[in-house]
Nucleic acid binder design. Structure first.
Lengths: 303, 303
DNA sequence: TTAATTTTATGAATTTGATTAATGAAGATC
DNA sequence: GATCTTCATTAATCAAATTCATAAAATTAA
């Protein structure tokens, strides 16, 4: 014979204990005294143990009953929290917003945005999942993530791409670097250079996807570095050159240590999008994040 | 509209996730696929949120569903543990054994017994509650406590007193103490002495209840000390005399630092009992503890 | 592509089991 | 001892979870 506990039982035990007696508990729970009596009896039958001491009249918890009470006091708050969370979810106050970013440099403007977001939407579970390991868009469809930052919009049913902002991929080198003399940089210029990039697949880097791969040029050496600040450090000390989005460049643009040049005469101009499920786009907090992302990036670019 | 979650729902969510799909989950849970479908629908209606993504066929958890799953994985083990504990309780393998001791010196033989007990009955929740603050026997009736160690059996319905062992309350003093010359000690002898006792009510000390109170004698000074070892230390350095049960003085009995003497020509002889509810006496672990308590004390006395 | 198979949804019938109402018994309280 | 509480019990009622039968949608195989 197996014991079949339900939340109702836990609530009953708790109420009887707190209000001292079945009758009062019944009042509180908006239920008949008889119902509680039945409930207890069935529980005791199943457990094979007396849950209450009936020697004196307002009946008290037995040892076994006290054990049950302790369990109730651990478990009940859990579902209560759960229910609150779902209430918030329905009210659009809480939710999940796991973001996959395909572009590594996006951390730069995303972090400040998330700071602001967390303050305004404390009940939303935000997280960044560096989209290195998996294909972000299928994950978006499967609801494994909720927002994808990407430069390459695709036509996927149920998924919408919102334009965030335009940017330019810019060449950076030290002031003293030979290429600093040129008005603009071409694919050929990279052939004998050390190129410093983020440690991600080539196809995710504009300099490769937009220039070097189409022109079938291979740099002399590629050095992969995680942090933007470190990339800039290496560039300044002439250990290589790099190509970075303009919102990253802002801090070095007017520094005499660096020169920045367009790549190709026209420059590499690209757009950044936020992809989300159509359903989620109705949610206020998702709209907020997208709006703030656009603003933050533009403000970084406007130096 | 309020959400009404039950354990059943949590189990369903967990099963669907683990076995990938409603159909398999239904098999596992020994329930119809239809039942699960209805269950989910009702949950989703109440929550006002889709718990699953139905774009592809073996359906997967949505963001909200994953939140529910996490809750399930925290809550379900709790009741499972609870049910196991109640199984053990019915099987007599687990239970609670909170012991109230009225006699302070009983720690001496109780600790080693509890050590042994914990090894044999790992699932029983044993505890000692120093019975200083409350009346132990009413607490026993109310199931606030499960075993009472006492020298004074009373006739209480539903409570049985099991004889543990006999002991003698013995006078202890330093070898050099004047009273060491006497064959036996009388009430009068305490009139000008410093008496060292445990820090409990007088009525709980044999020397008072059996000798000093009946003879209306007050010692010159009473000094209260918690630890038996400290009492003996003070006695040895002639800072006072004491009266202790024989199982405590075993270690000093043959030491040349101390003398031990009977109190009154016949000595103060008492019995110790374990009081428990009649119901609990049927339990094997309770019987074991009582048996071992008797053996341990007798072995301490047999030096 | 069609056909076959698997997977989920739905509506109505059924069964389960929780709740109630009415009443009785056993303490507690005055 | 009379009265007031508190809890247990029975049978009747009511709600809700499950089942059965079947349809719809998607996946896989042919």
């Amino acid at each position: 014979m197996k014991m079949h506990i339900e939340f109702r039982h836990l609530r009953t035990i708790k109420a009887i204990h707190e209000h001292g007696g079945v009758a009062r508990a019944a009042d509180i729970l908006n239920i008949t005294q008889s119902a509680l009596s039945h409930q207890i009896k069935s529980l005791e039958d199943q457990a094979g143990v007396e849950l209450f001491v009936r020697r004196s009249k307002p009946m008290r918890l037995s040892a076994a009953g006290q054990r049950l009470l302790r369990a109730a006091e651990r478990i009940l708050p859990e579902i209560e929290a759960l229910q609150n969370e779902f209430d918030g979810l329905r009210g659009g106050r809480s939710g999940r917003l796991h973001i996959a970013i395909e572009c590594h440099a996006c951390f730069e403007w995303l972090f400040p945005v998330l700071e602001k977001f967390r303050k305004h939407w404390p009940d939303v579970d935000v997280d960044i999942r560096p989209g290195l390991a998996f294909d972000a868009l299928p994950a978006l469809q499967k609801e494994e993530v909720d927002l994808v930052i990407s430069s390459d919009p695709e036509d996927i049913p149920g998924v919408e791409f919102k334009h965030l902002f335009d940017y330019e991929s810019v060449f950076v080198a030290a002031q003293s670097h030979p290429l600093a003399q040129k008005e603009y940089i071409t694919a050929e210029d990279f052939r004998d250079q050390t190129l410093i990039t983020y440690p991600v697949e080539r196809t995710r880097l504009d300099i490769f996807s937009q220039l070097l791969i189409p022109n079938k040029i291979e740099p002399a050496l590629i050095r992969q570095v995680e942090l933007t600040a470190v990339i800039l450090l290496l560039v300044a000390s002439n250990r290589g050159v790099s190509a970075l989005p303009d919102w990253v460049i802002r801090e070095v643009k007017y520094s005499s240590d660096y020169v920045t040049r367009p790549i190709t005469p026209k420059g590499i101009h690209r757009k950044l999008f936020a992809a989300a499920r159509e359903n989620d786009l109705k949610k206020e907090f998702v709209a907020d994040l997208i709006e703030w992302a656009g603003l933050e990036a533009k403000s970084l670019q406007s130096y």
